[in-house]
Simulated scan of single mutants.
Amino acid sequence: MRTDLNADLAESFGRWELGDDATLLTVVTSANVACGFHAGDPGAIRRACERAATLGVAIGAQVGYRDLAGFGRRFIDVAPAELTDDVLYQIGALAGFARVAGSEVRYVKPHGALYNAIVHHSEQAAAVVDAVVRYDSGLVALGLPGSEWLRMAENAGLRVCREAFADRAYTPEATLVSRRELGSVLHDPEYIAQRCVRMVRGEPIEAVDGSRIRVEADSICVHGDTPDAAAVAQAVRNRLIDEGALLVPFTGDT
């Protein structure tokens, strides 16, 4: 049983601090580093890259809409060509910090509203794929199983990785419950850890309505901005290792 554990990092901005990046980077195997559009200032991004490089954690570009005020969680009907340029800009910015830290960007994961939009929004999905292919066709695309983003990325020749969420509730259709809904975010570390083991094993988990669904998972995400994220990530890591899982970056980094 082989899997990856990822977290969203470098989401602090100026005096506004969010998440425990230092601790999370000792737990996860892949780091989704904010690129400055939805969150993250240059200092936060640099520190995350440096610590990830030191610890051997794979670095990924978490690209999003240009929406600092909304933390990238509001859909923006941006023109495809503009979205491609925005994604290129973000990957390039992060690549600079990763290079200075002695590492490199290995994958791309959209953030927030963009992540959810390109599950079905074909034009925006194509725009993000176009940016990744133009920048580096060796980058891996990380996203929701069955999404337009992963389908188009694979058709474009990119390697894809299917992501599941440790701390988010799922709909019966295996999509994420909106954060506006009660119960959309899970908080019990032990329950979350047990659910992650079932996902990695390919066993069904409970959707928000009580139905049973299967969620394909090559990588499991713990959101760095949720309360006690580090404790949740550690509980997930411990349980997976106890169950015999090998935790390694999905990019193949060692």
Rank of each mutant, 00 (worst) to 15 (best):
N6M: 04
L9I: 14
G14L: 11
R15S: 14
L18R: 12
L18T: 12
G19F: 02
D20L: 01
A22G: 03
A22M: 05
A22K: 09
L25P: 04
V27N: 01
A31T: 08
A31L: 10
V33P: 03
A34R: 02
C35V: 06
C35E: 04
D41L: 07
D41P: 02
P42C: 11
A44Y: 07
I45T: 11
E50N: 01
T54L: 13
G60W: 01
G64Y: 01
Y65F: 15
G70E: 00
G72V: 05
R73W: 13
R73V: 11
V78Q: 07
L83Q: 04
D85Q: 12
L88P: 09
I91F: 09
I91S: 05
A98I: 07
E104I: 00
E104F: 08
Y107H: 15
P110Y: 08
P110M: 11
G112V: 08
G112H: 05
Y115V: 13
I118F: 09
V119P: 00
A126I: 00
V128H: 02
V129E: 08
D130T: 09
A131Y: 09
R134T: 14
R134Q: 14
Y135W: 15
D136F: 02
G143C: 04
L144N: 01
G146S: 06
R151V: 04
A153C: 05
G157L: 06
G157N: 11
L158H: 05
C161W: 02
R162Y: 10
A164Q: 10
A166T: 05
P172L: 01
T175F: 00
S178Q: 07
R179S: 06
L182K: 14
S184D: 07
V185T: 13
H187Q: 14
D188T: 09
C196W: 06
V200D: 03
G202S: 00
I205S: 01
A207N: 04
S211V: 00
S211I: 00
I213C: 06
H223L: 03
H223T: 04
T226R: 13
T226G: 02
V232K: 11
A233F: 03
A233P: 04
A233T: 04
A235T: 09
L240A: 09
I241L: 15
G244Q: 10
